[in-house]
């Protein structure tokens, strides 16, 4: 491997690890919050109502994450601009 391909390999590996960590974090959050929301009283099996609630809950949580991420980014940029002036 030459210098450029070593560099590319390192960048790829770091990005992969970062993506895996991020997905794992979301996966844990889905499980925790959607179990709480959709399965208030665990029965002998997951009902179809509970299953469809979980699917919607995951989509909603992801949408919430994106919204929080965007709001946070906006706020941090504001603060940075205020600190820079």
């Amino acid at each position: 491997m030459d210098s450029a391909s070593v560099k590319q390999a390192i960048i790829r590996q770091v990005q992969t690890e970062s993506n895996v960590a991020n997905s794992r974090e979301l996966f844990e959050a889905f499980n925790e919050h959607c179990f709480e929301k959709c399965v208030p009283k665990p029965g002998s099996s997951l009902s179809s109502g509970e299953s469809s609630c979980v699917t919607m809950c995951m989509d909603k949580y992801l949408a919430a994450w994106n919204k929080v991420n965007a709001s946070l980014l906006q706020r941090m940029q504001q603060e940075n601009k205020a600190a820079g002036n």
Partner: peptide, 13 residues
């Protein structure tokens, strides 16, 4: 930033 976003989504959810 992502760690903070995860924490805040948890709280704000």
């Amino acid at each position: 930033h992502q760690r903070m976003a995860h924490g805040m989504t948890d709280i704000c959810w």
